[in-house]
Amino acid sequence: MAEFTKVTTVDKLPPGRGASVRIGATDVAVFNVGGVFHAIDGVCPHQGGLLGLGRLSGCVVKCPEHGMRFDVTTGTSPGAPPGGGLACKVFEVKVEGDDVMVSV
């Protein structure tokens, strides 16, 4: 069974915001998209920018370094042709009471 780690609380991450968290050796980017929480690999595949610190527009986060964009619900690049390629891993998220929890 997936092991979940508490990364933040609902009140600390309001809608439209993201955060960078570390679970063990894994950097995770966690976002609140209109009240629904999502988590993806926190390290940008371009040059390692922290995606959790990027600006969120709707469900798209923009890496704070060179602006690569990812849909935080799928981990893929918005508008990209179908077929895989560069994407961020998506992690499972659950909310228990006030706690936002992620499984990596």
Binding site: A19, R22, L53
Partner: peptide
């Protein structure tokens, strides 16, 4: 110069504002 640093400890949340990490 295009580097942002991760939060230092497990489960700790980093919500740095603006350009703090740079």
């Amino acid at each position: 110069g295009s580097i942002s640093f991760a939060p230092p400890a497990d489960g700790e949340m980093a919500q740095w504002q603006g350009y703090d990490t740079r």
